[in-house]
Design a protein around this nucleic acid. Structure first.
Lengths: 202, 202
DNA sequence: TGTACATCAGTGAACGCGCGTTCACTGATGTAC
DNA sequence: TGTACATCAGTGAACGCGCGTTCACTGATGTAC
């Protein structure tokens, strides 16, 4: 056979990337190209037509996942919300999803990314991406000490499944509301500062 | 040659584990036993005498690292400090070390652990370890919503080097003092709750 | 105290298998005339 | 509109290499008598 009827090359590429995501997540980066190709319904040679080497496939996948994540967060921004911290709130809502489906999706994504970091090239990609998040969030208008606290708490919680330390649904929900509240009520920002006197009067 | 003069089998074992830590951190779990053995000054056969299979070596290493980390945190507990959150404060001080040497040590440890998670057995070990931390920290006397916030912020910050998103020294320092303050001043705990009215009077 | 023997802590060569990559080939699709 | 030809999107067999594991062997150390 040559070109599959009813499947454009671009579609094949997508199917291959999706198969790679599943297989790498389940078996780690040492999973074979053969298994990925089989899952995509393509021969190993076919896979290698689209991605000349395994490294290319991994890089393309990492780029894809990182872009998707960014798009998800930006799509979650409330268009009515123009107060400082709007991006941070979208970040919180996306990464600390509470509906079981969304939560599972985020966990799977994080777990996949964790597997991909085995490749130094991917770490470089993630470093760049992370720097971009940092810049975007700085431009979001919250003071440094609030932003750093909130974002690191979100990151800690969303990475916890990767080492098996999943939070209970209650804890996750509480954390989410806490963090949203921190970003929304600027009168709290003083109380969150390390330099304020311990008493929380205003 | 047989037994190396001036090196007990236990010492050889330790040298092998340390070599494995370095090599796995630098090259990931797919690094070869040959390279680890060479770095330890032992033949590949010698390595396999101590660890019958690569999996055994990895498991032993993961156990080691997890135990070390726990010991470091417990050693950091202030014996004078009997207030709620003493363990959490030790956790903060250990994981958010600010001296360059200690910081590098933690980063390397986290990065190594991230590599080891490629093996499902290790994830299981980490899940158990994480559960134990959760239990220990629950017994530490702080309310759930404070503990969860603080620990996740610490985890987020200490895992950030693993995906390349390192915090600046200033941000790290600020975060550390913030979190320590949260655990120390129980009059703040209300203000950190998601359910309190936004105003921070007490 | 010396000797025989078992065991310990390795060595280093060989094996075998899985997996990434190469390669010769092919059938469908697009294009020129 | 039909035909020739190039290119695209694959197939599937073969190759080769790295790496985990096995194995036969060995020299030092510990133990019994």
């Amino acid at each position: 056979m040559a070109r599959k009827a009813g499947r454009t090359p671009e579609e094949t590429r997508r199917v291959l990337l999706e198969a790679a995501a599943v297989v790498f997540r389940e078996r780690g980066l040492s999973a074979s190209l053969d298994e990925i190709a089989r899952r995509a319904g393509v021969s190993k040679g076919g896979l290698l037509y689209h991605f000349a080497a395994k490294e290319d496939l991994v890089r393309a996948l990492a780029n894809d996942v990182l872009d998707d994540l960014r798009a998800m967060v930006f799509a979650e921004i409330d268009p009515e919300d123009s107060a400082p911290g709007a991006l941070a709130r979208a970040y919180i809502r996306t990464c600390l999803a509470v509906t079981p489906d969304d939560e599972a999706a985020i966990r799977e994504t994080v777990h996949l990314l964790a597997q991909l970091t085995v490749m130094p090239d991917v770490v470089e990609l993630m470093r760049t991406d992370s720097q971009r998040w940092h810049d975007d969030l700085r431009a979001d208008g919250m003071p440094d000490h609030v932003r750093t606290l909130v974002i690191n708490a979100v990151d800690g919680a969303s990475m916890s499944p990767f080492y098996g330390g999943a939070l209970s649904e209650d804890d996750l929900n509480t954390l989410k509301r806490q963090l949203l509240r921190f970003t929304l009520h600027s009168e709290l920002w003083d109380a969150l500062s390390p330099d304020t006197a311990a008493s929380s009067s205003h």
